[in-house]
């Protein structure tokens, strides 16, 4: 098979799921004729028609609300937020209406919210965000943040078939920069399973999305110095695959957590707490993190570069940690 981009992998998943199940519909801003701001839904209208590819007014609250209502009748709406930053506009619908629905009254909300996210593309303070932790702190939502085309397609299919609301973060930096040949046959990547992308024995690097690639690159550099890092790609933040993280730390005894999200309240803190609870006696060095700064995402390239974790930061932090 021809290798396809990250973006195309997601598009294929949408096509195939809509083909498989007429309960799957897409709803969002500019997704039909235009094919979405990033063209992820390009071609869906021509194949599935107006009733299944629905353009909406610029009303994030109404979009999430309507998708929730549709799911109550058994549909499986896939929402596109034009950029994940606009998720703040529907925070209430997501965290209060959607997330609490199954718990409160046993009404599952099988919907997917797709959202182009992440920095490195000079999007500035309102088009570069990684707001996943607001939602990780909201019981009832699942959160997927893939790093490869294979995973993006398989996780999207799993998300659409899941009976719970799933936030599906699509890192914009990855959209057209990576390619991978995908299996011809139908496959899913189950939610809640991290992936060990590289085996190693000296320390564990845990990351996800675009930073999973930078972490792998760092591991390659470290290997040249004789430091063997194990690299875990979380793929799904909720449910979090605690077992894979804990097992790896029991083997390497050291952990470095890398995320593009800002530092305070980022997932590194949560993973540190989990390791304190489950692997305290196995730790031979401080739980270390490399993260973005605690600032808004700045616009100008040198500022954004300073904001984002860089390869050199990861290598340096790993080297320091390995010395323990």
């Amino acid at each position: 098979m021809e290798p396809v981009t990250f973006l195309e992998a997601i598009r294929q998943a949408l096509f195939e799921e809509m083909d498989r199940d007429p309960a799957v519909i897409c709803i969002g801003e500019d997704i039909s004729v235009y094919g979405g701001a990033f063209k992820v839904t390009a071609g869906l209208l021509e194949r599935f028609g107006w009733e299944r590819v629905i353009d909406t007014p610029i009303s994030e609250t109404a979009i999430i609300g309507a998708a929730c209502g549709m799911s109550y009748l058994g549909l499986r709406p896939v929402v596109e937020l034009q950029f994940v930053d606009f998720i703040a506009c529907c925070f209430n619908q997501l965290t209060n209406f959607v997330a609490k629905s199954n718990y409160r009254w046993g009404a599952p909300v099988p919907m997917v919210v797709r959202a182009p996210s992440g920095g490195g593309v000079h999007g500035g303070p309102f088009h570069s965000g990684n707001p996943e932790m607001y939602f990780m702190h909201t019981p009832g939502l699942k959160i997927v943040y893939p790093s490869t085309p294979y995973d993006a397609k398989g996780l999207m299919k799993a998300a659409i078939r899941d009976n719970n609301p799933v936030l599906f973060f699509e890192h914009k930096f990855l959209y057209r920069r990576i390619k991978e040949a995908l299996p011809a046959e139908d496959y899913v990547v189950p939610l809640g399973q991290a992936m060990v992308r590289r085996k190693g024995s000296d320390l564990t690097i845990v990351s996800y999305a675009a930073m999973a690639h930078t972490s792998l690159e760092a591991a390659a550099e470290l290997a040249k110095e004789g430091i063997e890092a194990e690299v875990i790609d979380l793929r799904t933040l909720v449910p979090l695959d605690q077992e894979t993280i804990v097992n790896s730390v029991k083997k390497t005894n050291k952990i470095l957590i890398v995320h593009e999200d800002t530092r305070t309240g980022g997932i590194a803190g949560e993973i540190a707490a989990i390791l304190n609870e489950q692997a305290f006696e196995h730790l031979d060095g401080p739980i270390t993190r490399v993260t973005a700064l605690d600032t808004p995402v700045p616009y100008s390239p040198p500022l954004e570069e300073r904001f984002l974790p860089q390869l050199a930061d990861i290598v340096r932090a790993a080297r320091d940690l390995a010395r323990f």
Partner: peptide, 8 residues
């Protein structure tokens, strides 16, 4: 909005 979705 939710009931609009139900109606749709």
């Amino acid at each position: 909005p939710v009931m609009t979705g139900v109606a749709m």
